[in-house]
Simulated assay, not measured.
Amino acid sequence: MSKLIFCQFNIDTACVELVFDDRSQIPIDFTAVENEVADNRFQRSELDYLIYNDPLAYADLILNSKLNVLFE
């Protein structure tokens, strides 16, 4: 199992980028995620807050499918 060593939002690519110790990477396109899951501007602002302030929590939310918890 790879260990996460780096996580940040890259404004140039509009992705939250995860880098693991085996040099593998996972980019999460936040525009695509917002288009699929956010129904209104309030949900989009909640996701935007996480992207800029806690990208690791955002990645955990997306990768572990916890979106129903956020929007209930």
Rank of each mutant, 00 (worst) to 15 (best):
V33A: 06
A38G: 03
D54W: 12
T31F: 01
Y58I: 04
Q8W: 00
Q25P: 00
N35R: 07
I26T: 14
I51H: 01
A32Y: 06
L56E: 15
L67E: 09
I28M: 03
S45C: 02
F30D: 04
L67Y: 09
V37W: 13
R44Y: 00
D21R: 13
E17D: 13
N68C: 10
D21M: 07
D54S: 15
V33G: 06
L67I: 15
V33C: 09
N35L: 11
F71M: 10
F30N: 02
V16R: 04
I11W: 03
Q25C: 02
D12F: 03
D21K: 11
P27H: 11
E34L: 03
I5T: 08
K66S: 08
V33R: 00
N53T: 14
D48L: 04
I11R: 12
L47H: 02
I28A: 05
C7Y: 05
I62D: 03
S45F: 00
N64P: 09
L18E: 07
P55H: 06
N53D: 12
P27D: 14
I26D: 11
P55C: 13
K3A: 08
V69G: 04
R23G: 04
A32N: 02
M1D: 09
R44T: 05
S24Y: 07
Y52K: 10
N53E: 15
P55Y: 11
L63P: 12
L61A: 08
T13V: 03
S65I: 11
L50S: 06
R44V: 05
K66P: 01
I28V: 05
V69Y: 11
R44D: 02
Y58F: 15
Q25A: 08
T13M: 07
N53H: 15
